[in-house]
Each structure stands twice: as structure tokens, then as C-alpha cells.
């Protein structure tokens, strides 16, 4: 298929960017979206132009590295997939595809389609962990009884790959689905209880300091999340936060 691509080009974080049009021909419908981008970059390199910078790593939908706002949706029009797992069969011959970086003040553009997502890492560092003594006498996690329901819900929350699609899709650039998932995966398990109060208070504080917006419960994040993280996690985080505020 032959396509017209409208891509955000930006030299670096200090330079103003703009949308630039490109044509790519003979794209196979079996290609992934990133392979199509590879074809474009090969074309650009061969013609002596700067290739388009975009994030990618595993290309198996599990690392959370790829991003891209494609035709007005995070990770494109397909559901439950990251951009690397989005296939060109989702598009038609002759289509014009708009490709932009995640847009959020807390995710500044580094170059072209690459944004700085270290705000997520700072939120994680503020409390997204449990402190375990690894001196050699660590208790086997399997020795702690956990209900199947809690284990499943914690696992569902833990499938968040931190790609930032929730922030990109949210009209308020809110990071609450990400933080909700990270709070929930510990809040549901006994190992997470010891640091529960500080965890949620510190993570929410860091989230606010990073400049993410307030959740207005549109549900866009849940729909666009490649891992299907549920809004229930935001509600749980809200409960945890209110509980922690009363205690702290």
C-alpha cells in the first residue's frame, strides 16, 4: 500500500517542531507500524535526510518503550496493543496517517517522536517498591497465603508497562492510571501493607509535582491502555490516598 505520513519533526527540546509530510510506497499489510517507520527511515537515510527518531526496544509489546500518537489515538486505532504490535493491515491504501509524540507538559519532546518519560521513573522511585531484606533469610513469597482474587487483581495491575499511553490519551494528561496500577499492585498484597501509607502519599505527591493533570474520569486511558489496566485501579488509589491522608 502507498501512504502519506504527516510526522512531527523536532530537532531537539529547544527547537520548535512542525508537521512534515512524507510518502512511503509498497508497504506490506503484514508489516508492523514500526517496520513501516523503518522503511521510511531507510528512504530518508538513502536520500541524505535525517531519519525520524522514535522510541522502540523489544518490539514484542512488553517493554513499554514504543509510543506514538497515531491518527489521534495512543498506539493507533487497534485495541490492546502497543505501536510495535500494530499492523499495517489496520490501514488502507492511500491513507494519510498523522504521527505525533505523546503530548504532555510532564513528557517533554527530546527529538521528533521521542519524549522524556523519566517523570514515571521518579514517581516509581518515590514509593513504587517494597523494601525487602535480601540478607539470605528472605521469606519465600509462596509461604504467604494470598487469595486467588487478590493475586489476580494485583497481577492485572502489575501488567502496566509504563508506556505512558494513559497520559497521552487523557485530555488532562493525567498519570492516574499508571500511578493507580503501581499503587494497586502492592495495595492488594500483604507484602505491600507495611509501606502502604507512605507509598501512596509520596507517589501522588511526586505525580503532582511532575505536572500531570487531574483525572476527570473520562475513561480514555482505560480504552487506550495496551495492557487493559482498569479504572478500578484509580478508584483503589483514591481510596488508599484518602485512607493514608487520614492516618498521616
Amino acid at each position: 500500500m502507498n501512504l502519506t505520513l504527516k510526522i512531527w519533526r523536532q530537532k531537539d527540546s529547544n527547537t520548535k517542531g512542525q508537521m512534515v509530510d512524507y510518502k512511503v510506497n509498497d508497504i506490506s499489510e503484514h508489516m508492523s507500524f514500526l517496520e513501516m517507520m523503518d522503511v521510511l527511515n531507510e528512504q530518508l537515510v538513502n536520500s541524505g535526510e535525517e531519519p525520524v527518531a522514535f522510541d522502540h526496544d523489544c518490539r514484542e509489546g512488553i517493554c513499554g518503550m514504543c509510543s506514538l500518537y497515531i491518527n489521534g489515538e495512543a498506539h493507533g486505532p487497534d485495541r490492546g496493543v502497543t505501536t510495535c504490535q500494530l499492523h499495517m493491515r489496520m490501514f488502507n491504501d492511500g491513507d494519510t496517517i498523522t504521527i505525533e509524540p505523546w503530548r504532555a507538559t510532564a513528557f517533554p519532546v527530546i527529538k521528533d517522536l521521542v519524549v522524556d518519560r523519566t517523570a514515571f521513573e521518579r514517581i516509581q522511585q518515590a514509593g513504587g517498591y517494597i523494601s525487602v531484606n535480601t540478607s539470605g533469610n528472605t521469606q519465600d513469597a509462596n509461604a504467604i497465603p494470598i487469595s486467588k482474587e487478590a493475586a489476580d487483581e494485583a497481577m492485572d495491575a502489575a501488567t502496566c508497562i509504563g508506556c505512558g499511553a494513559c497520559v497521552a490519551s487523557c485530555k488532562n494528561s493525567s498519570a492516574m492510571l499508571f500511578v493507580g496500577a503501581k499503587v494497586s499492585q502492592y495495595a492488594l498484597l500483604p507484602q505491600g501493607q507495611v509501606e502502604a501509607t507512605e507509598r501512596v502519599l509520596n507517589m501522588v505527591k511526586q505525580m503532582d509535582e511532575e505536572g500531570f493533570g487531574n483525572c476527570t474520569n473520562t475513561g480514555a486511558c482505560e480504552v487506550e491502555c495496551p495492557k487493559g489496566i482498569s479504572l478500578e485501579n484509580i478508584a483503589r488509589m483514591n481510596r488508599e490516598y484518602l485512607k493514608a491522608s487520614l492516618k498521616g
Partner: peptide, 17 residues
């Protein structure tokens, strides 16, 4: 303020009311 640059194309109807 949490989004200083808007999207050139945003399909809000695809994921929210």
C-alpha cells in the same frame, strides 16, 4: 496547563464520551 502543545489530530470520540 498539563498539555502545553495540543495534538494536531486527536480522536477523542474513539475512547471517551
Amino acid at each position: 496547563n498539563a498539555r502545553s502543545i495540543s495534538y494536531a489530530k486527536n480522536n477523542g470520540g474513539a475512547n471517551s464520551t
